[in-house]
Design a protein around this nucleic acid. Structure first.
Length: 355
DNA sequence: TCTGGGGTCCTAGGACCC
DNA sequence: TCTGGGGTCCTAGGACCC
């Protein structure tokens, strides 16, 4: 076998549930649901994850906790604990970085690995062993020529397995599958594609790019066909990601109707976001406000600031001005404030003239 | 099954300018 | 004035992902 470059996708199995079961070994084998503050009677709270035993009762992530409770009154409900997942994730990523590979972190429970080897399966097995030895967590590993293939391959590898999906095996594996099996095509786009006669990956791969562009735009349309052909990004970026923006939002258990109440929450959210930005050392160039009315109508308004700033008072004032542009006649179930950061490579304005 | 929170990127349309 | 055509910036919304 010859040495060449590979992309591996490491996906931790049932990450949040697995971390919780390590802390609560007595719950192993029981239906466990993690979400919100762990109180299944709270409205407007959904499951972050559910163990296999809970899934057998029809419970899945995204399901309202009250529904989960109805489906399985005996389930154990736990609150989410982001710092614990953060810590576990950091240990996994540090373990991966000990190998002679390039590591691109992709969220809490995933990473892409760029490696040069003649035996990617052997490398995958060593990664799995190291992660398990260090953290007691299991992971699935997909092997591909690019990120798209490796990502789908790790899905086939679950749980705790290794699977290879390359350009050589792409067509036989994927051609008969529905288009939403592709990474980047969801339910909405799959339905639109089906309406146009593209039901399978093979049909999408054979589509006319111009026809797709006419329906999905000049970038997205041709991109969908590209995905159906098994292509994708093959570059592993090891430099830390620079966030484009940041946001905070809250769904209220009981609707807000009092304007003063709404304004107070906007103040809190804006201050929070401004503080986060300050801690991250980032300047803000745009502020957005999100309002979700009952039953579930979401609207956003935004405005660009005259100049980048880190000043909390400026951010808060901007958020209130934007809030003033909403019609607040209906009850409000969610408020959010988000900001865009200035990016390092695009300084906001003027260049200092030379002396 | 009354539907979280935090992100990223793309598109369409209007304003404005030459 | 019955109006052209391109370029850029800004905003609102949609889709997708973890």
């Amino acid at each position: 076998m010859s040495t060449r470059d590979w992309i591996l996708h490491v996906d931790l199995d049932q990450f949040i549930a697995a971390v919780e079961l390590l802390r609560h070994p007595e719950l192993r084998g029981k239906p466990v649901v993690v979400g919100g503050s762990g109180d299944p009677t709270q409205p407007r709270t959904v499951a972050a994850t559910a163990t296999y035993e809970a899934r057998e009762h029809g419970i899945h992530s995204g399901m309202p906790l009250r529904t989960a409770l109805r489906r399985c009154p005996d389930a154990v409900f736990l609150p989410t604990d982001p710092p614990a997942y953060e810590a576990a994730s950091a240990r996994v990523m540090a373990t991966l970085r000990e190998f002679p590979v390039r590591v691109e972190v992709w969220g809490w429970d995933e990473a892409f690995i760029g490696a040069t080897t003649d035996d990617p399966e052997a490398l995958a097995a060593r990664l799995q062993q190291a992660v398990h030895a260090r953290t007691r967590l299991t992971c699935s590993v997909g092997i591909g020529d690019n990120k798209h293939q490796a990502k789908l391959a790790s899905g086939y590898a679950k749980p705790a397995g290794i699977h290879r999906l390359t350009s050589d095996t792409w067509a036989q594996t994927m051609n008969a599958r529905p288009t939403d099996a592709l990474w980047g095509i969801g339910a909405r786009t799959a339905r639109k594609l089906a309406d146009l006669g593209y039901h399978t990956v093979a049909e999408l791969a054979a589509a006319d790019p111009a026809h797709l562009a006419a329906h999905f735009g000049p970038t997205n349309g041709p991109w969908y066909r590209y995905l159906a052909l098994g292509k994708g990004e093959a570059e592993v970026v090891t430099t830390p990601w620079i966030a484009r923006g940041h946001s905070r939002e809250t769904t209220f258990q009981h609707d807000l109707t009092d304007p003063a109440d709404i304004a107070r929450h906007i103040t809190d959210l804006a201050r929070h976001v401004a503080q986060d930005a300050a801690e991250a050392g980032r300047e803000i160039i745009r502020v957005s406000v999100k309002v979700r009315f009952t039953p579930f109508l979401t609207r956003t308004r935004q405005s660009k600031l005259p100049a980048p700033t880190t000043d909390p008072a400026t951010i808060t004032r901007a958020a209130h001005a934007i809030l003033g542009r909403f019609d607040l006649n209906r009850p409000v179930r969610l408020l959010g404030v988000s900001v865009d950061y200035t990016m390092p490579d695009q300084p906001a304005e003027e260049v200092t003239p030379p002396d």
